[in-house]
């Protein structure tokens, strides 16, 4: 399973970016499907951050290309929202904390299921 977090400079110590489509980077975390242990963490640039228009769609396109299942970040805009729905990517709307903290909470939530 892959979880992406909207971040500024990237990395788990970074704060969650406060805009969805225009977040500079996505920090992508690969989890073991059964144990939910972190297997790998890497940072990708968000093409939406530099786009003239359609930032939300471009951001989701990147997430879809990376085969992300869940994204953690602020509330997406209308275009990004539809794009996420169509791509089957779930969003956990969270801001005002570090990527690490948000990830921890989401993993706890997933373990309950």
């Amino acid at each position: 399973m892959k979880i992406a977090i909207t971040t500024n400079k990237g990395g788990l110590d970074d704060q969650i970016a406060d805009r969805f489509g225009r977040a500079p980077t996505f920090t992508i975390v690969e989890l073991d499907d059964n144990t939910l242990e972190i297997k790998n963490v890497y940072v990708v640039e968000n093409p939406g951050s530099k786009a003239g228009s359609g930032a939300g769609v471009r951001a989701v396109q990147k997430l879809a290309d990376e085969k992300v299942n869940i994204v953690i970040g602020p509330n997406p805009g209308p275009n990004a929202y539809i794009a996420l729905q169509q791509s089957g990517i779930r969003i956990y709307a969270m801001t005002g904390m570090s990527a690490k903290e948000a990830l921890k909470r989401v993993i706890e939530e997933l373990k309950k299921k």
Binding site: A51, G52, G54, A55, G56, V57, A64, K67, N79, S87
Partner: peptide, 21 residues
């Protein structure tokens, strides 16, 4: 090629057009 980001290709599905973009 879309310059305005109006086309999304969700994994495994047909492209989706965003008319407003």
């Amino acid at each position: 090629v879309c310059d305005t980001g109006a086309i999304l290709l969700p994994g495994g599905a047909y492209p989706i057009i965003f008319p407003r973009l």
